[in-house]
Amino acid sequence: MDNKALTEILAKRLNRKPEDIEKLLEAFIATVKNRCGDLDSVAIPGFGTFEAKKRLERVSINPATGKRMLIPPKVTLSFKPSALLKNKLR
């Protein structure tokens, strides 16, 4: 399911224009971006948690060239599905 199909389904269900849905979706994404940028986590009941995780710097070796690279530390967004969603998928 791609973005277009998703917005269409949502528009139909909520009786709203697809543009409104786009706006709401963007607002949601912006919120997650802001909060996770502050290393907070966003929990959605019945679905899962989006949280920012810090990864330490490390040395990795490129298997193709054998060169060693120093990978800098970074913050990544991770998603942890809730138990409910996991069970549904089983």
Binding site: K33, G37, L70, P72, P73, T76
Partner: peptide, 14 residues
């Protein structure tokens, strides 16, 4: 966007 604070770092070859 989430990695903003560390965006200035790049992988360095040793």
């Amino acid at each position: 966007a989430i990695n903003m604070p560390f965006s200035s770092f790049e992988a360095v070859e040793l």
